[in-house]
Design a protein around this nucleic acid. Structure first.
Lengths: 212, 212
DNA sequence: TAAAAAATTGACTAATTGGACAAGAATTGG
DNA sequence: CCAATTCTTGTCCAATTAGTCAATTTTTTA
């Protein structure tokens, strides 16, 4: 009856990887709404449909689950976000980045919120990230903007604060969703809301940088 | 020894008001870092230098303390934020609003963070606010922008998303402080960082709206 | 197919926490 | 100065929760 074909071949680590992923998703959802302290191991287990002891089998402890969620989020960015490089023209690079960032707010609002909550708490579990990968990425982008400005491809705008503007503006649609929803008089944010958001942000940023 | 002058005249309700305020400030600080669930009544009491039972004497329960904090924050905005009205020219009104908003991020980061955390959790304790006062304020501002655009005083920019940009950009300096601090390579944000932020935001937004 | 390894699970424990309460101290008004 | 009111505070309790453990089942390997 249960042929190896029907069940699929057993691969070592497959169960581990699948159950871990299930727990990770459940935890991301829970942390995004209730925060670290507001989320119980039991509630994560329930949402993942495993007994609580099983969560402890795959993760050392609650902090272990939480840091795994954070690391997963950081990995997502590397995968999803187009980078701003000097090879591209400012206009195209900024448009691509804004589009990708808005798309992230739409497709990964839970991840965005977990990250935001961590920042709001002083980012105690993100020190390493902020001091290494992020620092490197940020100064790299500053260099790109500086080069663009030096080459006369862009008005002289403080690159750091420009990046913060883009960050803040795009994050807003995930992190302050209730406010946006009420403002727009809708039930939930739809694709066209995000399209309109991206269009407006690009319009203002591009004109603001003298790129139109 | 202890003259009534030295102690000041006893006013009924004075003690209540003072102790309540002390607890409220301690609670704001605690909630801003650890969130609702991460903050214990004991820790609030300790920070306010009163026994825990005293907190329960002035507030019905933990939710009572929390909503008092939120109401206090909303009240602060009404006091501090300049309003955007059709009587002013767009340029001046936007500058004033951005300046006031950045100043709020600088002078009230804790309040800003409590509010942001509440939003991130779906704003369960802000439904009334979002559906009443805020809704009214927001549609009023939309009307102002629409009038400006109709009068040719401003480029046609989606007013709602423009407001979100301003909100997101200015909030960022309070809510994502660790990121900003690491990005700017400083120990803590200083007055001049906020000045530079406000200048850049105004520069981009004004040019973005065709107001330069 | 049998032993080894990996995964599942229920039961238990120690610690924390929100809240209740009542006794006592300080303040106020007459 | 005295009674009423307001405020303070130590103590206690029930509920929740993170984490442990050992027994059992399932899966893999040889």
């Amino acid at each position: 009856m249960t042929s190896s074909v029907a069940r699929g071949p057993y691969k070592p680590g497959k169960i581990r990887q699948q159950t871990q992923e299930k727990i990770l998703q459940a935890a991301t959802q829970a942390f995004s709404v209730h925060g670290f302290n507001g989320t119980s191991m039991q509630s994560i287990a329930d949402a993942a449909n495993v007994p609580k002891a099983n969560v402890h089998y795959y993760f050392k402890n609650k902090v272990g689950v939480y840091t795994a969620v954070l690391e997963n989020i950081i990995g997502l960015w590397d995968t999803v976000l187009n980078d701003i490089t000097a090879e591209h023209e400012p206009k195209q690079a900024l448009c691509d980045y804004i589009d990708a960032k808005i798309k992230f707010s739409r497709t990964h609002p839970r991840e965005s919120r977990v990250f935001a909550k961590e920042m709001l708490s002083g980012a105690p579990h993100l020190q390493a990230f902020l001091e290494e990968d992020y620092q490197r990425w940020f100064s790299g982008r500053i260099a790109v903007f500086t080069a663009w400005i030096a080459a006369g491809k862009m008005q002289p705008i403080d690159p750091a604060h420009l990046l913060f503007m883009i960050w803040g503006s795009t994050q807003h649609y995930a992190d302050f969703e209730p406010q946006v929803v009420h403002s727009l008089g809708t039930e939930a944010l739809q694709q066209h809301h995000f399209d309109q958001a991206a269009a407006t942000i690009k319009q203002v940023i591009l004109a603001g940088c003298g790129l139109e």
